[in-house]
Every structure is written in structure tokens, then in C-alpha cells.
Design a protein around this nucleic acid. Structure first.
Lengths: 201, 201
DNA sequence: GTCTATACACCGATAGAC
DNA sequence: GTCTATCGGTGTATAGAC
């Protein structure tokens, strides 16, 4: 590790922290575990970042950014709103299933940030991001299907995030694939009920 | 603290732990903090309970039981399904708002249990409880309003829990009362769409 | 049975050798 | 600049005095 800029180390530490948290949980993500994952000596930690909490701020940003790139893949190709939503939610749950620890890490980070004065502003920003992301997906879907939403898109976006969060929490808890699929079914009905044919070009 | 049965101490410790977790978070709920809250010497801890994780098991049971008694108060008195659901969800969110730490404690405990081999079975049990509770409320509501649900009650119950979890997470993160109220509005529409007039007596 | 005093591991953070 | 070695503090858990 000779001559690596501080910013680069900082990014490497954030990535390593993300890996440790996804695999072993936030409580196990000690400075020692993080530098071990990154293959760095312990002292590099406080050389690159001022405190553990400060690094967790970077990790949240990293996780949110990744969620953003993953979201694009959930845009479905279907002919009805109900089917498109169902495909998107199913794709999302598959994503959770493929790496549950990573999704759980998001919740652990949010809860921890809410309890940490120095990080208490993060969760609001995090959810602002999710809501904006969901709004974008809803707009894109409406455009592709020539429909419009009967309530303001930001409101429907919040409902969509509400549903994905709740879906994820319950699935993490009981790993009941069949029940989750049925919830996706009824959730798709619920959201599709806010779709109507577009009247404006 | 002379001559208090072990079972009673155990219950007192669980209650104290619940208080500490709600106020300061799970990470702050050390054995020292818990016995201080309970007004006991440190050694009483391992006299009454074998380990901290074992006590957390009791705490989860306590929290779930309390959620059960609180749930009854959410049964609304309205004439339409939509209004009844809206009142119930609004009542639930008021409950969260009145003691956010307590609701956050539930999430923290679930996430921690998922990461702890000895407690990994708890979350499934916890959600089984929530789903049963929601089923009971839906049955009672249907009976009071002379309606029936167009999908199986357990499935609708899971959707209801999905919505309350998601609603709570987002509100904890951004404390946006107005946005949460709008989410309750659309969520009520969504659930009410599964109500229809009862055909059987 | 109950509590004081303490063992021992590990935490975040840093001083000081190279 | 980079790392080894270590500090002060706190965690869970217990030994041993009363």
C-alpha cells in the first residue's frame, strides 16, 4: 500500500465496510474488521477518515447510489400497468433474495443513523433519494404504457417505497417466498388502481 | 432487593431493557445500562438470565405482546371500509408518533435477531404474530361493517402489515407528517378495494 | 442468595518508530 | 507517509466476600 491517495483509501474503506456489514451485520463492522477486509493496517483507517461514524456516512451514500443503478433494471416490459408493476416488484424481490445481507444492511444503517446525533440527518436524505428514484420509475412506466397516474407521482412514489420496504422486512423475517409473491400480487392491484388512460399527449 | 424470585427479576430486566432500547437504541442497551435502569447490581443480571442475548429474547416477546394490546385500540368506528381503514392507520401512526423510539426498537431488535444465530428464529415468529393480529383486525372490521374481503384474509393481513411497516420506516426517517397522511390515504384506497358487500350471513 | 470487585477481550483512536 | 505497538475505556461475564 504505497502512495495511494487518501480519497482512494477512503473509497476502498467504504466499499470494505459495505461488504462486512452485508455479510456480518453493522455491529460486526468494527474498524479492525473493516481494515482487515480492505487489506490495510489499522492505522490507515484514521489516516483516511476521521472517525468510524464518518465512514458510515460514505457507506450510506454508496448503498444509496447502488440502489439507484439497480433500480433501472426493474423497469418491466409489459402491456398493462398491473403486469408491469408486478414484474417490477418481482424483480425487486429477486434482487433482495439474491443478496439479503445487502438489503438488511440498508435497514441497519438507517436505524443506526437515526440514533446517532452526528448522522441523524442521513435517513431523511436517504428516503428523499428513494422517493425520487421511485418517482422516476413511475414516470418512465407511465410514459411507456401511455397511461397517467390519478394521484401526484410523488405521493404514489412514497406508497411504492412503503410497499417495497414492508415487503422486504417481512421477507427477511420469514423468508416466505409464496406469501411474498401473494403480497406482490395484491400490491400490484393496489398500485395499478391509480393508473388510467392518458388523456394528454 | 432482598428475596425476589428469579422469574420476577427476569421480567423486571426485560422491562428495563425495553425502556433503554426505546430511549437510547439497542447498541446502548448494555448489561450495565439495563441493570442501572432496573436499579439492580450488575451481578443480578447473570443471576436472573444466562446471557444478554437470552434477555433480548424476552424483550422481543414483551414488545410483541404490547403491540397486541395496542392493536385493539386501532379498531375504528366508521361506516365505510375506506374510512375505517384510514382511521385505523391514522391511529396507528399516531401511536408511532407518540413513542417513536419504541417502534424503532422493534426494527432494531428484528435486524439484530436476524444476525444472531441464537435468535435467528425470532423474526419469523414475530411476524407470524403481527400477521395473526392483522388478520384478527380485518375479520373484526369486516364483521362490524357487514363486508367481506375478496382475497384470503391472511394475504390481506400480510399486505396490511407491509403497509404499516413501510409507513413507519419512512416516517421515522423523514418525520414528514403530511406525506405520511397522503400515504395513508392511498393505502386506504388500496385496501378498501378488496372489500365487497357480504353475501353470506 | 446477594453484592463488590475484578477478569479478560475488544473497542475506537493515536503516539512514535521507521 | 506508513505502519507497529499501545493507550484508555467499556463490553460481557464471574469469582469470591458477605
Amino acid at each position: 500500500m504505497t502512495r495511494i491517495p487518501a480519497a482512494e483509501r477512503r473509497a476502498a474503506l467504504a466499499a470494505a465496510a459495505r461488504t462486512v456489514i452485508a455479510r456480518d451485520g453493522l455491529a460486526a463492522a468494527t474498524t479492525r474488521a473493516i481494515v482487515a477486509e480492505a487489506g490495510m493496517p489499522l492505522a490507515s483507517f484514521h489516516y483516511a477518515v476521521s472517525s468510524r461514524d464518518e465512514l458510515l456516512r460514505d457507506v450510506v451514500e454508496l448503498v444509496v447510489a447502488d440502489e439507484g443503478t439497480a433500480a433501472a433494471s426493474f423497469l418491466a416490459t409489459a402491456t398493462t400497468a398491473r403486469e408491469a408493476i408486478k414484474q417490477a416488484l418481482t424483480g425487486y424481490l429477486d434482487h433482495v433474495r439474491s443478496d439479503p445481507g445487502n438489503e438488511q444492511a440498508m435497514f441497519e444503517l438507517t436505524q443506526y443513523a437515526l440514533r446517532t446525533p452526528h448522522l441523524a440527518d442521513l435517513p431523511a436524505e436517504q428516503y428523499r433519494s428513494y422517493h425520487a428514484l421511485a418517482s422516476g420509475l413511475l414516470e418512465a412506466g407511465a410514459s411507456a404504457l401511455s397511461i397517467e397516474w390519478s394521484i401526484p407521482v410523488p405521493d404514489l412514489a412514497r406508497l411504492l417505497v412503503t410497499l417495497t420496504d414492508g415487503l422486504t422486512l417481512a421477507w427477511l423475517a420469514d423468508r416466505d417466498d409464496a406469501a411474498a409473491a401473494r403480497t406482490i400480487d395484491s400490491a400490484s392491484d393496489a398500485i395499478a388502481a391509480f393508473a388510467r388512460e392518458a388523456v394528454t399527449a
